[in-house]
Write a protein that binds this DNA or RNA. Structure first.
Lengths: 126, 126
DNA sequence: TACATTAATGCAACTGAGTTGCAAATGTAG
DNA sequence: CTACATTTGCAACTCAGTTGCATTAATGTA
């Protein structure tokens, strides 16, 4: 579908991603923007930003949805193969830029792969 | 925690996995066993079988939980790193035995990784 | 600038996977 | 067989995400 109009909601949400490379969960955004946007709107705008290749989404270990700014994605092609890292101590999630090679699988066509790595992040390692 | 008693519920659920290597979603099992077991029991027994290293679980692209028989897992060590493949046409999920190498990441300790590959399965490729 | 069109929004109610508390049933050690 | 802790079923709940619909607000056109 994609964005057709430049609305206030879209600006508000884009601003949330402007300064950060970390992923943010939809729920976190809904809480954070509670006074500004309705939760339905948040979900719908995130959806559209993803369609447009501005954000990409993935599910964390609990099945909840996170969004992060796309770097190399466009609306015609998503580079979703990069892994996401979720810290088991603090819960923070970010995109990691390492390349994980998914081998060809006999008799199957691989289209997308989602990789969620769990462990301890830099700040929680000490 | 693990299994303490060999109850009817545990036998019923184990029977579901006896003949198949495919993964089954918790929801599918609940539907399938509706006349035999309560859904709470299904969730609880699956949980225990996972603790015991009999089954392993993972989330699919919609965040719903699937279970499959463990091959190399024990209750002290889970080999969760093997990828799962979900067919985007028919929805079927299975464990694939290919090895995906997750590189070390600077300043982070990788503990678990979950890999979900999506595409077309053998039967849906035609 | 005013207007008509149609997308976007807010709200309330809903959905559905999974969880919890508790009383009743059942497996098992002795 | 009995005692009693573990399991089960049930109903009610949680909570992320969705839907329908009436209202609001961008945007193209004149």
């Amino acid at each position: 579908m994609g964005i057709i109009r430049k609305t206030r909601s879209i600006k508000v949400l884009l601003a949330e991603f402007y300064n950060s490379r970390d992923a943010v969960s939809a729920i976190e955004l809904i809480k954070r923007l509670d006074s500004k946007l309705n939760k339905t709107t948040v979900y719908r705008v995130l959806d559209k930003l993803e369609d447009d290749g501005v954000l990409h989404s993935f599910l964390d270990k609990n099945g909840i949805k996170w969004y992060a700014k796309c770097n190399a994605c466009t609306n015609s092609k998503h580079f979703d193969a990069h892994p996401h890292f979720q810290c088991l101590s603090c819960g923070k999630v970010d995109c990691v830029t390492i390349d994980v090679h998914i081998p060809k699988i006999p008799n199957r066509e691989v289209m997308v792969s989602q990789i969620l790595i769990q462990g301890k992040c830099e700040s929680c390692l000490s």
